[in-house]
């Protein structure tokens, strides 16, 4: 390096080179750690899809299981999952959203509301199997709903509730406080403020949170397996309304558990295909939530 004397200060010395090497090494090490979670996931998903390929077609979705569940499709489980998801969210979304409105817009910072916050956090941490025990004790036996879609959906509803409360609160909190004050200053009531300014501007976040719970409710097994979901139920192929609400039903998650652990001699690709359908459901729901979020963020009004 034949530069002027003033540049000598910035010439690479062995120490500097070592530092640069360290720098690059650090980056690669952490990158590898991130990749260590992502790459296996993609490999596994790819493997599942390949193994499932022989069964992945529309017929598989619409057909009922045959020959003691060793052949056929997954229709009764698919439609059962749809029932459970919709009923549970129809219960938990309104309660969760209103609860979040209370906590974010009405609640003052006193011990009582701190207890409520604590309860929400605790509810979010209750293991799914304990939810199952609760559903069994409360809905199946105490409320006398029996083993039914209602019991299972209510159990799922309570399980999804805290997450909906948390995501809705986050969405509400993102609306600037100055908007609320401006409304109060012109004599609007709390509810008028919420209705005309707070909710319209947080609805995207609220919806995203609720949609994400669709995939959670669809994937849960433990809370429904003791409250209203059975191994097998005979229904018509492609029937859209096969279940009454006071009956038991099948569900995809439970079906996957059953055919992969309890039933011998299942056609090889069927469990894989069931797992792939469940995964596809989750991916679609998440993609929908993400695109909704991106779309609505692009239209954000302030």
């Amino acid at each position: 390096m034949n530069s002027a004397a003033g540049h000598v200060l910035f010439v690479e010395t062995p120490a500097v080179r070592r530092k640069l090497r360290q720098e690059a090494l650090a980056k690669w090490v952490f990158c590898a750690m991130a990749a260590a979670m992502v790459v296996p996931l993609l490999l596994i998903v790819g493997y599942l899809v390949v193994r499932a390929a022989p069964s992945l077609n529309l017929e598989f979705l619409l057909e009922v299981p045959k020959r003691g569940m060793t052949e056929g499709g997954i229709w009764p489980a698919l439609i059962g999952t749809i029932y459970l998801v919709f009923i549970s969210l129809a219960v938990s979304a309104p309660i969760g959203i209103l609860a979040a409105i209370y906590l974010n817009e009405y609640a003052r910072d006193n011990w009582f509301n701190r207890v409520i916050n604590l309860a929400v956090i605790n509810l979010a941490g209750v293991p799914s199997i304990v939810h199952a025990l609760f559903g069994l004790g409360a809905f199946v036996y105490a409320a006398k709903f029996g083993y039914s879609i209602i019991s299972a959906s209510l159990t799922l509803a309570i399980m999804t509730l805290p997450v909906i409360i948390a995501s809705t609160r986050e969405a509400l909190a993102s609306v600037p406080q100055s908007f609320r004050e401006a409304c109060w200053n012109v004599g609007a009531t709390r509810w008028q403020t919420i209705k005309s300014v707070v909710l319209p501007n947080s609805i995207s976040g609220i919806l995203t949170g609720v949609i994400l719970q669709v995939s959670r409710a669809a994937g849960e097994t433990a809370p429904v397996m003791f409250t209203g979901v059975v191994f097998f139920k005979s229904i018509e192929r492609g029937d859209l309304f096969p279940y009454y609400l006071n009956e038991q039903c099948m569900a995809l998650s439970m079906h996957l558990y059953t055919i992969s652990t309890q039933v011998p001699g299942v056609k090889e690709s069927i469990p894989y295909a069931t797992a792939v359908v469940l995964l596809a459901l989750v991916v679609m729901v998440n993609a929908a939530a993400i695109s909704l979020r991106v779309y609505l963020r692009s239209r954000q009004k302030w």
């Binding site: 979670m37 992502v38 596994i44 469940l278």
Partner: peptide, 17 residues
């Protein structure tokens, strides 16, 4: 996004894997 997806994979699918 991938991590969000990782979080959303149902536990029964993990069990199956």
């Amino acid at each position: 996004i991938v991590i969000e997806f990782l979080a959303a994979v149902p536990s029964v699918v993990w069990g199956f894997i």
